[in-house]
């Protein structure tokens, strides 16, 4: 189980927790199998992230591991780490670094994401 951003939801994923809008109205229950209609509903209400079964966002360590598999990715990781030289180990800074690295990894894997 893990929290994923609504923009990457795909039909067939299963919600592990109910989803509410800002007015505390339930949009979908736990166990709902996502289809295009439900995904569209969640996106229309501006839902940012949801809990789904069997899928978790990769951790910084997992991303680092995947980025160590080729010299190009290692170089890319080194550029990003250089930007974060001396950074505090706060959850915001760590998450920022994780998202930037994840994006670079996805771009390298052809999924299209942020540039490095």
């Amino acid at each position: 189980m893990g929290r994923v951003t609504a923009s990457i939801l795909k039909p067939g994923m299963v919600l592990s927790k109910p989803v509410f809008n800002d007015y505390r109205q339930q949009l979908a229950d736990a166990g709902t199998i996502l289809d295009t209609r439900v995904i569209s509903l969640l996106q229309t209400w501006g839902v940012i992230d949801v809990e789904v079964q069997g899928i978790a966002e990769p951790t910084l360590q997992e991303i680092d591991m995947r980025m160590s598999t080729s010299s190009t990715l290692q170089e890319c990781a080194a550029i990003i780490e250089d930007r974060f030289y001396g950074a505090d180990q706060h959850v915001f800074v760590m998450e920022l670094q994780r998202l930037v690295k994840l994006s670079a990894l996805k771009e390298a894997e052809g999924e299209g994401a942020l540039r490095v």
Partner: peptide, 22 residues
């Protein structure tokens, strides 16, 4: 050098990881 982060700022904003990604 990455500037020092003031944790209070993130507490004030109260955003999730999903928000940050957006």
């Amino acid at each position: 050098h990455f500037p020092p982060f003031v944790p209070l700022s993130w507490e004030v904003l109260r955003l999730s990881s999903g928000h940050l990604a957006e």
